[in-house]
Simulated scan of single mutants.
Amino acid sequence: MFGTFKSALFAGILGAMALAPVAATADQLTEILDKGTIVIGVPENFPPFGSVGASFEHEGYDVDIAKLIAEDLGVELELKPITSKQRIPFLTSGTVDLVVSSMGANPERAKSVWFSSAYAPFFSGAFAAPDVDVSSPKDLAGLKAGVTGGTIEDLELSKALPEGAELIRFGDNAATLSAYLAGQVDVLVTGNTVAAKLAANNPDQSLETKFVVRQSPAFIGVKSGEANMLQWVNVFVLHKKLGGVLNELSLKWLGQELPDLPSL
């Protein structure tokens, strides 16, 4: 009799469990769609990726990407300008939903956040006028290349410098850029954002990317554990890449064709 009672009690408990509502796991993508707003962290002052423009509104490559994300999601966009040090803390704390702020991916950062496929080129390279025939470090023989001493560009290019090439080191970026504009060097070796800004500020200067010294592309930061959000962002990046939108943004803000970008 006692056994029959236990069986009935057990069956009753199972029935009650089956009828009880199951707690739903929070999903960031669904919450954003339901809320109708997404908060995206963009660079506070890092042109051409993000800064306050002449119209006193935030603009740049990353800002345009953030606007496209909100548009494709069909939600309102809240831009949150952030510094480099705020990117990961703001993402992990939920202060922002995504970080689109020229952020590079590395194993240390990947302990705290997830990264999308790369959406923007960020690299150190050699830049010069169209008529300067250079496509690799070996072509620098017989030319003068200007670089800021002690930088990644200096350290990396020094390893591959051919005989007959002259690498002239300057004390800071301002001196390096001034030397190039003054014709003291034939080739400028710097970051692509620095070269883009130089070209924008000097329309009479035709500046081309001759070769890449070191790649460090930018990735969109996603809160760790948000698999649906990461999947959506990766599809977004792929869609904009295949549709030519990323190439248009690269030409607009960086003055160059979009190079091949890595996928994660």
Rank of each mutant, 00 (worst) to 15 (best):
H239G: 07
L167Q: 11
D27P: 02
K138C: 00
F2N: 12
F115K: 03
N247K: 05
Q215M: 13
L230C: 09
Q28E: 12
V245P: 01
V213P: 02
V132W: 08
A218M: 03
A70V: 06
S216Q: 13
V75Y: 07
S158W: 08
K197N: 14
A175W: 01
G41N: 10
M1Y: 11
A20L: 14
L79C: 02
P89I: 09
G171Q: 12
K241R: 15
R87D: 06
K111M: 12
V96P: 00
G243C: 06
A200L: 12
N247S: 10
K241M: 11
V235D: 15
K240R: 15
G146H: 08
M229C: 08
G12R: 09
G171L: 12
A8W: 14
L251W: 08
G191D: 12
E257A: 13
S116E: 00
A141D: 05
F49Y: 15
Y61K: 07
S55K: 15
T176D: 08
F170A: 05
S51T: 07
L254I: 09
G12S: 10
A129G: 03
S7P: 00
F170W: 08
K111V: 03
K144I: 08
L79K: 01
L167K: 04
P81K: 06
I38Y: 00
A195Q: 05
I13N: 07
E156N: 03
G146L: 04
D260M: 12
V245H: 10
G164I: 07
G142C: 04
Y180L: 12
L246F: 10
L91N: 04
V42A: 05
S51M: 13
G142H: 07
V212F: 04
G146F: 03
I220F: 08
L177S: 07
D172G: 06
